[in-house]
Design a protein around this nucleic acid. Structure first.
Lengths: 196, 196
DNA sequence: TTGACAACAGAACGATTGTTCTCCAAAATT
DNA sequence: AATTTTGGAGAACAATCGTTCTGTTGTCAA
């Protein structure tokens, strides 16, 4: 049984990005370009492994279609604000299916549950799910996920006296003034809340 | 320019059903079965009209792909709080795509843009999109969409002196005390916000 | 009753598809 | 040092695909 290598997950995310843009799975020939390889037979081998891993299926006619896990995004186990390991790649936890409406770049987006009320005045509540696009830079005024003291924090990016600061949206919390450089994990692009 | 007949919308919904099941647009030959016709050339003519109506597109390679209106569920034209017609079925306005994550009962669910800040203390902002499940009854404490003076209002359902009242989450707004019975349109089950 | 148009059916055809097969170089294993 | 495994390349081929073109109905107005 062929196992799912790290290269395969690279292929998967390329395919996810392609699908997000075109909403269809292309032909083997087109997948050669998408994957950056030249062999149709190898494309087929890759798709078969993705199917074995549960990300793809075939219709009775043999047409490749995405299976539910194809759409699932990793839901980070720990939440923003709590002490969360910097590496968010591990995807052990729950899965969460959401359409690309909020997610323009699926492979670079992560869903992170929000913990705490430091952004409550921005309408971001404890238990909300943040849609975060992983990026190293952000603009002033963006709500960013930053890495502070090895933990994730959701704050508004601002500037004070020429230095970047992280401003909470809750008068009870202090502005965070990083000593050295500011490490940005990603930018908040969407928010999802479930009632009941 | 060929116009979009009622038969075409029948073809469209068949295609939508097929896509919902298989998440791909089949070949012309397969579409013959889906549409219940026998001519590939006529299938092509149909798809061209669906494309003209905005439901389909083609990739640069000529592959048919669904366009956003293909997925759209009705996004109520007017927003909650503004004077909105009671019938929400008409789907003229903007379109909005979202997966079933927040929508457990798609056929009974509607997306409604939120207007105003009467619920801001509940973290519901102007411009947010409310996921509303159409129901005639609700529980105390639910955030409901109620029909007040022929307009939609998003408020928390509460009880005062034995009578139902609609409580805003903003100190600047008054509690609504309906004289007679309270007409409930639906219950808020989810919230979606987009940044940028 | 004619004639135009809409709604298909069906054939023909070159291009493209997925499949299978053989081959190969580098890395890993023995 | 020898050998197996990994990660692909490339050719060949029947089946299928989309396209185009020509017919064939039924309908409805003139």
């Amino acid at each position: 049984m062929a196992d799912f290598s790290s290269k395969d997950s690279e292929y998967l995310s390329r395919l996810q990005d392609y699908y997000a843009e075109w909403k269809s799975i292309p032909s083997y020939a087109a997948l050669c370009e998408v994957f950056g390889i030249a062999s149709k037979s190898w494309v087929k081998a890759i798709l078969n492994r993705l199917a074995e891993a549960g990300f793809l299926e075939r219709t009775p006619d043999g047409v490749w279609i995405p299976a539910p896990p194809f759409f699932a995004r990793p839901l980070a186990e720990s939440a923003v604000q709590a002490g969360m390991p910097v590496a968010v790649s591990a995807t052990q936890g729950e899965h969460f299916v959401i359409d690309e409406m909020l997610i323009e770049t699926p492979s670079r987006s992560v869903l992170i549950p929000v913990k705490g009320d430091s952004m409550i005045e921005a309408g971001i509540h404890d238990g909300d799910v943040a849609v975060v696009e992983k990026r190293l830079t952000a603009n002033l005024g963006d709500i960013v996920v930053a890495i502070v003291d090895d933990a994730f924090t959701l704050k508004t990016l601002d500037k004070e006296a020429g230095k970047f600061v992280l401003r909470p949206a809750n008068a009870a919390y202090p502005v965070i003034r990083p000593e050295a450089s500011l490490e940005i994990f990603g930018v908040l692009v969407g928010l999802i809340r479930k009632y009941r």
